[in-house]
Simulated assay, not measured.
Amino acid sequence: MKSNVANLKNDAVAVASSDAKTETPNRANSIISILRSAAGLLAAIAIVWLVFSLLTDGIFVSDRNLSNLMRQTAITAIVALGMLVVIAQGEIDLSVGSFMSLCVTVVAMIEASGTVGPWVTIFAALAMGVAVGLWNSAWVAKLGLPSFVATLGSLMLLRGLALALSGGRTISGISDGIRFFGDAFVTGPALWAFIAVAAIIALWPLRSLSQNSNPRSVLIRVALGFASVVLLAWATLSYRGLPMPVAITLTAAGLLAWMLTNTVWGRHVYAVGGNRAAAKSAGIPITKHLVTSFILIGVLTAIGTLMFVGRLGSAPPESGLFLELNAIAAVVIGGASLYGGTGRVSGVLLGALLMQSLGNGLSLLNVPTAYQNITSGIVLMLAVYIDVLSKRGGKLFARP
């Protein structure tokens, strides 16, 4: 009898211990999912804005600085959109910063010559984006090199070409046609139309609310999206209007979000990153998708180049420095996994805004660039660590 009682007690202790072990990872997974959600990102952005607003006596949230912050974020975000597609397929592109440096130099040299119109410059930038995308994809998709190695080589190659062409000097003489992409503002009826379309897109998920199995998540997503539109309207209507780089980036983000969620191509992107062997067995043309993704990020980086040159009006030799790391950080902070198969456009935009808010706020506080880079590095490492935690069930350490 005593033996049976002892066995029952041991079984009870074992069950309780098992339940405790199960509860801890579940709680950790819940925290991780909140941190990687849009609500978690918005909360983090709100905290960063509040802290910098207090430390700068309100300068951080002034109309002028918010407009400047949006333009800075737009350049990082449009590159990060292309990085999302690459990372969603389980690859990476480390060459985007060096490519921007080379493209900035070529664009400035064409503009400084004064012999051609802005449309030639635009075509040259986009053609370079396609060419670099084909170059990187040839090494990865055709020759089988790991994308990390292939694009790391391109990083050094393209940065060297940029320095060789520019001679390490800043090139000026950008025409008004190119400066339009970085300096112009959307105002008047066009601005109201843009805001109205953004509001409709934010409210669009409500159309299928009754058919959705989780209406609460739909309502939360709609509320967050509409709040973002209200914030955008307030920031633009209270200053000079909507900066052109922001309008271009948001338009590209809307198109990419629709393509990723409503087209066969978008479903294949996630399938290739989620399980490449299964995707190959299903007949998905993996090589074609990899080539397309590297061309896409090349073209989007070229567009970001036009925005960057247009905003500065010149081409400094250090253009694009650490751009690839900021883009990767924006994608990972936004909820995408470096293992592939996941990622949302809205998360990328919020991730880019968070990264740029940190940089902008630290600059206003006159924090040296070295410490700004340290902060960005720590944020990137934490974002990747959270991604790793989600993959191993919330376990804090790799080994027991």
Score class of each variant (00 low, 15 high):
residue 149 V to W: 06
residue 305 T to G: 08
residue 7 N to M: 15
residue 344 R to C: 00
residue 145 L to H: 09
residue 160 G to N: 15
residue 216 R to K: 11
residue 262 N to S: 15
residue 58 G to K: 11
residue 240 R to A: 15
residue 367 V to H: 06
residue 275 N to I: 07
residue 123 F to L: 15
residue 201 I to N: 05
residue 281 S to W: 03
residue 341 G to W: 03
residue 99 F to S: 06
residue 337 S to N: 00
residue 199 A to W: 08
residue 387 D to T: 06
residue 197 V to W: 01
residue 344 R to H: 09
residue 229 V to S: 09
residue 328 I to R: 01
residue 62 S to N: 02
residue 145 L to C: 14
residue 320 G to D: 00
residue 201 I to K: 04
residue 188 G to C: 11
residue 195 I to M: 12
residue 31 I to M: 13
residue 47 I to Q: 04
residue 199 A to C: 11
residue 334 G to N: 00
residue 29 N to I: 06
residue 152 L to N: 05
residue 3 S to V: 07
residue 338 L to R: 01
residue 114 G to W: 00
residue 319 S to Q: 07
residue 201 I to P: 02
residue 162 A to T: 03
residue 310 G to P: 07
residue 109 M to V: 05
residue 339 Y to M: 11
residue 319 S to T: 00
residue 212 N to E: 15
residue 88 A to P: 00
residue 123 F to K: 05
residue 30 S to G: 08
residue 128 M to T: 03
residue 273 G to L: 04
residue 57 D to K: 11
residue 154 S to I: 04
residue 100 M to S: 04
residue 120 V to D: 12
residue 162 A to H: 08
residue 6 A to V: 10
residue 119 W to E: 14
residue 361 G to C: 02
residue 284 I to F: 05
residue 310 G to H: 01
residue 225 G to V: 05
residue 113 S to E: 14
residue 81 L to G: 00
residue 242 L to T: 04
residue 296 L to S: 01
residue 130 V to T: 07
residue 89 Q to P: 04
residue 57 D to P: 08
residue 367 V to R: 06
residue 344 R to I: 03
residue 282 A to V: 04
residue 183 D to I: 09
residue 191 L to F: 01
residue 315 A to I: 03
residue 362 L to R: 07
residue 125 A to C: 07
residue 84 L to P: 00
residue 212 N to I: 09
residue 5 V to K: 15
residue 176 D to T: 13
residue 41 L to D: 07
residue 263 T to M: 10
residue 187 T to C: 11
residue 15 V to T: 10
residue 250 L to Q: 04
residue 342 T to C: 00
residue 262 N to E: 13
residue 372 Q to E: 12
residue 99 F to Q: 02
residue 339 Y to C: 03
residue 168 G to W: 09
residue 197 V to M: 01
residue 104 V to Q: 05
residue 363 S to G: 10
residue 18 S to C: 10
residue 346 S to W: 01
residue 46 A to M: 12
residue 25 P to Q: 08
residue 284 I to N: 02
residue 144 G to R: 02
residue 207 R to A: 13
residue 115 T to C: 06
